[in-house]
Design a protein around this nucleic acid. Structure first.
Lengths: 112, 112
DNA sequence: ATTACTGTATTATATACCTATGACAGTAGA
DNA sequence: TCTACTGTCATAGGTATATAATACAGTAAT
């Protein structure tokens, strides 16, 4: 993982976890690394990981059990919906950026 | 223009100008708004606009004449090359994000 | 010369982010 | 019970970003 970006690290970590869920690397209901574990693994601060987890908690991706750990939500329907939303949002974002930069969709597809 | 993003404002402004150049809204050699003008127009601070312009100056998109203003470089070959680079970088970024999120290229194209 | 623009630079202040460190509370197993 | 994990919270310090205010220097038109 690479933190040399303008995007806040806790956002990058949240996206990283979200992507692992979408990819099925972490399954529904499964436990994820503790804040201290992941912090050590990524070379980040536990507080930063905590902030990322809190965000995912608020968004509904994670559940927490004090003293035990964080878990991916077991609401599979929710995850499927979010996955679809993520794709559509991404498509919208791509189109927006193409328009802003003055690239045509054809020009883009040609390089894809 | 919208600054409620995690991306620093001076980066957003630099991208905004770059896009205007790529789209041909501002032409090669043409003068761009003064730091104070653009700051007022965007509701940002002149120092922030200055930082954006300095970045574009360093990258070669702009030239400066003290007491007169900032101008888009007259090196059209450079701009063409940068435009192409921007497209290819964007394509690479899109592919990367698709891979990280576990979306297939076909899945993406279907929504495009 | 005066005026009104330019770019450029400095200082101070506020805020968000990140890290380091430590503390407290809940859980599970030896 | 003790130990070693968990989540959670608080404090302090450093850095980047953004704003506000001000100042100085170069250019051009009146």
């Amino acid at each position: 993982m690479n933190f040399d970006s303008n995007i806040p690290i806790y956002i990058q970590i949240a996206d990283y976890i979200k992507n692992l869920i979408f990819r099925g690397v972490i399954e529904s209901g499964e436990r994820i690394p503790s804040v201290r574990e992941l912090a050590k693994e990524l070379g980040a601060n536990p507080n930063t990981v905590q902030k990322a987890y809190s965000l995912l908690l608020k968004e509904g991706f994670l559940k927490t059990k004090r003293g035990i750990g964080y878990f991916v939500t077991d609401d599979e329907e929710f995850l499927q919906r979010k996955r679809k939303e993520a794709l559509l949002n991404f498509v919208r974002e791509v189109k927006e950026r193409l328009k802003k930069s003055g690239f045509t969709l054809e020009e883009f597809k040609r390089e894809l």
